[in-house]
Design a protein around this nucleic acid. Structure first.
Lengths: 341, 341
DNA sequence: TTGTATGCGTTATCAA
DNA sequence: TTGATAACGCATACAA
């Protein structure tokens, strides 16, 4: 390793007997510069492995050409795919992305957002952590906060563009599907009942029950956690005590937990209990039994969110603050909700 | 949105009737400054939401406090977990990570690496794309290239610290396991036979066959691709034409493809063919049938790689260039290799 | 077409 | 303990 003196624009200029401004011009498109000198410069630059210093450029130009992506967690198929979509758009635009995981910790979220006002990112794409807190901190920054786009998990009362799916409709459809397959005691599994997404999805569930005149049993609404072992305990308890014939999980992870709990208890899916869940798992067909899913267009959500942000960056004012893009999820019927009767 | 003039150190200094140097000192630990002024400054900073400009600091300090992570792909459980490990260490150190996915494209890898010599990152942690190419470009940068740590997929001939698993041993064990379960015609599925990891894993397979006096049939070495549909075609062809009784996949994705192909052909796992694969899938027990895996300590690999890099950054010269950390993978026997006889 | 000079926001050196 | 000043590497306005 040793001394790390990367060659800078001065070195390059000296090596070419040119001024730094001329060299600088060779790397920008619009400036006046003769073809030959430009080629000479680019050639020498390659030879010396010159790379314009990112920090100096950004400081000078007052923009970073990077966008920050804040998500609750990374080990999650939905967010992986969404980030992938964002990354594709960003790359096309010559931008980089900086990823932050809040681990569903509100403090971290606030800290990240505040921190980002140091010029490190030109804009933010975020899926929020929770909303049991006072998040008006976003409004406090309002006058000069960074361009911000929400996706999937949003704060309803913060007015900024967002890309979401039709969670109410999807939940309604999912619940109806369970009912059609013969379920009458359907448990609803949520991680955080107060989360905007948790609430919306639950409304769909409740309304579907009502429409089919199935009485609502509050005990069947189960509040789970983010801890695997704790969830298994909760679910085993739930499955034995309440004997549901259907389980609707509002989050992918809880579908897996339901499988594990059922295995341990010797409860058969779908014979004893049918399972449906929101999930972006690509190998859902390979599960035992294959899992019926409501699948969000995760990559597309990322793409739309990025497009929205870039529109805001490229043409300030061109995107209404209350703009919302709503995409449709898709129901994939598989064996975990098969009617064996 | 509007004008984005973040408050800078000058604004803050003016608001306090102090010089910028004094203000700057308040944010550094070692400098002399009176307790009261420091508190006054920090308080006002909070009030005005002042964040030291990241680019200016980095330009001035000549270090970025970020490390770059280069991986072949992101939609991969192993790399997700490894990145997670890296991120944990980096965060503790007050560093950020910048993630780059090469999509197994060697050109991109070269371009990323070159690009990173613009001061954007202080070091690089990388899992390489392929090695069918001339990658001595890394050596060309050698004199003043960034501190670099390889993990999992490495270039054998580039001398830099690395964190790997004992792939030879794991493959040997995996193949032996299949043999013990009664397999005699074991197909070996690789994505790139020339890849360092592909080669090492294949040697383990070959030696295990030899040790059990099972003749080696070259046709059973299958070179697959990164395209799902193409792989399915290759595997269906292979399963029908060669009738293996065991399949050893050197990459997670190929195990899934084998499942799909078998489903489509009506071939039963594990009755007709047993399957084992390298995989970091956490829900392997939920597959149909549950998948026997060789699982690498992915998160730990990331942690070790990051620790190594930070050691290099903190104490230049303290890590030998040929340092290698070797971790053990673990074999999880499940139903995909069950002996039903 | 090319060169000179200035400033982006910060920190370190030196002087007060 | 605090302040003035220069420098980090680059890009632009302006001069040549």
């Amino acid at each position: 390793m040793g001394i790390l003196h990367n060659v800078n624009i001065k070195d390059l200029a000296r090596a070419l007997n040119l001024s730094t401004s001329t060299v600088s011009r060779a790397f920008r498109d619009n400036s006046d510069i003769s073809k030959e000198t430009k080629e000479r410069i680019l050639c020498k630059a390659k030879e010396l492995n010159y790379q314009p210093n990112h920090y100096a450029s950004n400081l000078r130009e007052q923009r970073s050409k990077t966008i920050a992506v804040i998500v609750p967690e990374l080990a999650n198929n939905f967010f992986s795919l969404a980030i992938h979509g964002i990354e594709r758009v960003a790359r096309d635009k010559g931008y980089h992305i900086l990823i932050f995981a809040t681990d569903d910790d509100f403090e971290k979220e606030v800290s990240f957002i505040r921190h980002l006002h140091n010029g490190r990112a030109d804009g933010i794409i975020m899926s929020v952590s929770g909303e049991a807190n006072d998040h008006t901190y976003l409004d406090e920054l309002a006058e000069n906060r960074l361009p911000l786009v929400f996706f999937d998990r949003v704060y309803e009362d913060i007015i900024t563009p967002r890309v979401i799916t039709n969670d109410y409709k999807s939940s309604f459809t999912a619940t109806q599907h369970l009912i059609k397959q013969g379920c009458e005691r359907i448990a609803y599994l949520a991680v955080n009942k107060n989360h905007s997404i948790g609430k919306t999805r639950m409304r769909g569930y409740l309304d579907a029950l009502a429409k089919s005149n199935i009485p609502f049993d509050e005990k069947l609404i189960i509040d789970c956690t983010n801890k695997y072992s704790k969830n298994i305990k909760i679910l085993k308890q739930m499955l034995t005590a309440l004997k549901p014939d259907g389980v609707f999980t509002s989050v992918e992870r809880l579908a897996f937990a339901t499988y594990y709990a059922s295995y341990e208890l010797g409860i058969s899916i779908p014979k004893d209990v049918k399972v449906i869940g929101f999930s972006s798992l690509e190998i859902a067909p390979l599960l035992n039994p294959s899992l019926t899913t409501i699948t969000q267009p995760a990559t597309q959500i990322g793409i739309e969110a990025a497009n929205l942000l870039f529109k805001m960056l490229d043409h300030p004012g061109s995107v209404d603050a209350d703009k919302r893009v709503v995409l449709d999820s898709k129901l994939f019927k598989r064996n975990s909700t098969a009617n064996l009767a």
